[in-house]
Design a protein around this nucleic acid. Structure first.
Lengths: 235, 235
DNA sequence: TAGATTGTTAATCGATTAACAATC
DNA sequence: TAGATTGTTAATCGATTAACAATC
């Protein structure tokens, strides 16, 4: 039996909970900005748009960071969640594909404030290699391996057309990237150990369209469509 | 007891299945483009990045559109899923907020090909009202109600900063919009009957960061991280 | 102490998966 | 008929929720 490594985060957190931790983190940032020092699970759940039972259950996977009868210290809980997610330090990321979307991503200010730093923009088109976008040089796609090694990049963002996405993925994996955020409307094949998350505008709109169609179809006298739970606003 | 309305789509489809139907639709489009006329559940599941049991279960909620021993007619199944989602005709949408992201969205060609048509771009900044983006006039935010009425818009896209998102939401809801795709990093409050879906870059990256952190932490001798299931590539 | 609120339990609900009977 | 593949069943797994004992 060996000694435990220093940072103790060995608990197994359900995937659904992991996906909500960033939402809680953002809500806590908002509360901090408003000068709130303490909040109840009811307060935070409201700011995050979930019910308080779910929030407390989620937080219970991280540890006991609240005080019964009192609530949570906003700053302390913010730190604990940031630590759990792993955004107490910045992650270097590369963005491949500097079209309209790539531009928008490169200029996205939330990157920096939420634990990420764009270290390179890559594009296959040589005519773009003189450009700067958001103060960052656009570099040849062939430089990917070098850049990943130099900066210790683990996360890559794909903003190319669908046709190029698998090739970009293969190159990313070969270079040592093990997490990919894919904006291209394509299903990516990756080896075990590489995580892929996708963001797909058309899919989101089509899901809305499906429900919209149902709303229109239902009897006006029968408002039985289960609406999204009303949520508290932040920001 | 009244007569059923003509279009018979009353079955209750699980939300997880609804979210995958657009993925299947896209995979079928790819197969169609390749000239494939028939496919098995194994083929289609591969192209969509799911296992075949899940695919067949999902399709079973729509009806029996396959042939045992043979498979599915690609064109027929494509049409049935498109009909189920509600994208056999185009949905008019408005985009509010013409910053970097709004530009990218306005120029996104997948909109048209996947069942949506951008009928207006709105921005609060008067200096932008002379612009055209992607061939569409940028119009004052105050015109929202008029545009929604004129085109029968049910779906709105928010690409504003977080600080403006709730006001935009309220105006959208007041104008009659009942489905919102939100790109602003804010939790939106909406009345019952209004659907909101959110796309949040930071959240996606933070989820990747969480898993990335765990990969780095684990013993090199213990490759127990459950990787994403390898998926077949499309496009 | 009395009131408030957490952290946890247990019940319920929904999603996934493997297996296979039905049937082309 | 024999082989292939769907559509469905039933078991399992994971997520949500309400309730409340613990405790500040």
């Amino acid at each position: 039996m060996t000694a435990r490594t220093s940072t103790e985060t060995a608990r197994d957190i359900p995937e659904a909970t992991v996906a909500r931790l960033p939402v809680y983190l953002r809500a806590l940032t908002t509360l901090l900005d408003e000068g709130t020092t303490t909040c109840s699970s009811e307060d935070l759940a409201g700011a995050a748009g979930v019910n308080s039972a779910k929030l407390r259950k989620d937080l219970s996977y991280l540890g006991s960071y609240g005080t019964r009868g009192v609530g949570y210290d906003v700053e302390y809980l913010h730190f604990q969640i940031a630590r759990e997610i792993g955004v107490t330090h910045d992650w270097p990321v590369v963005i491949v594909g500097i079209g309209n979307l790539g531009h928008a991503l490169a200029n996205f200010s939330g990157f920096r404030s939420r634990g990420f730093r764009v270290v390179a923009l890559l594009d296959a088109d040589p005519s773009r290699h003189e450009e700067q976008v958001a103060g960052i040089d656009v570099r040849p796609f062939a430089d990917l391996g070098e850049i990943v090694r130099e900066h210790g990049v683990a996360i890559g963002v794909i903003a190319t057309p669908a046709a190029a996405a698998q090739d970009v993925t293969d190159a990313m994996v070969a270079s040592g990237i093990t997490s990919i955020l894919n904006f291209a409307p394509a299903v990516l094949a990756v080896p075990p150990g590489v995580d892929v998350r996708k963001v797909d505008l058309s899919i989101e709109l089509q899901i809305l369209a499906y429900h919209e169609q149902r709303k229109a179809q239902g009897d006006p006298a029968d408002p039985s469509e289960p609406a999204e739970a009303p949520e508290e606003a932040t920001a």
